[in-house]
């Protein structure tokens, strides 16, 4: 627990510093009161948490602490296999979002979904399986596409395709 708490405190201190750094730009006294109070409290409580990890007697299981590495997707060297999956999935989702406007909602979603389904299911064995998978995905996304774009008239991103 100690290890996690220390990382948690450091992360929250980092958040406070990032937000404190933005404070000087504020002009209106009314815009400053609340953030100053909250950031002061966040800084103090994080410091208390940090100090406590040094004061308390050593105790808890080290294996819990390892999962604390999760802070950044790149930090998971300890458990390379599974972390690799997480990182690849996050990258795919980021690309998926980035291409929504460029390629179009439907096509991007089907491709990204299909890639993730292929990747998470550890590949496909036969062509037939691949075709079934694609049909399921195209249909699932198609249903939502019709509901949102045609029935609810939510203008989904179009891009080059649709």
């Amino acid at each position: 627990m100690k290890n996690i708490d220390r990382k948690a405190a450091i992360m929250m201190l980092a958040v406070s510093i990032i937000f404190w750094a933005q404070m000087p730009g504020l002009m209106n006294p009314f815009s400053i009161v609340f953030p100053r109070a909250i950031l002061t409290l966040l800084t103090i409580t994080s410091l208390v948490l940090l100090v406590r990890t040094y004061l308390r007697p050593k105790g808890q299981a080290p294996e819990v602490a390892q999962s604390g590495k999760a802070q950044e997707p790149g930090a998971g060297a300890a458990n390379a296999g599974t972390w690799k999956n997480v990182i690849i999935s996050v990258v795919v989702v980021a690309v998926w979002i980035a291409l929504l406007d460029v390629v179009g909602f439907y096509v991007t979603s089907v491709l990204a979904f299909a890639f993730l389904a292929w990747f998470l299911g550890q590949g496909v064995k036969h062509l037939r399986e691949a075709v079934t998978m694609l049909v399921i995905i195209a249909a699932e996304i198609g249903v939502f596409y019709v509901i949102f774009a045609k029935l609810l008239l939510v203008p989904l991103p179009t891009g080059v395709l649709f």
Binding site: W96, L100, S109, F113, L116, L120, G121, I137, E140
Partner: peptide, 14 residues
């Protein structure tokens, strides 16, 4: 999982 995880991601994006 191969369908569930991307489905949730898809719904989250949508």
């Amino acid at each position: 999982l191969r369908y569930l995880a991307p489905s949730i991601l898809f719904l989250a994006i949508l």
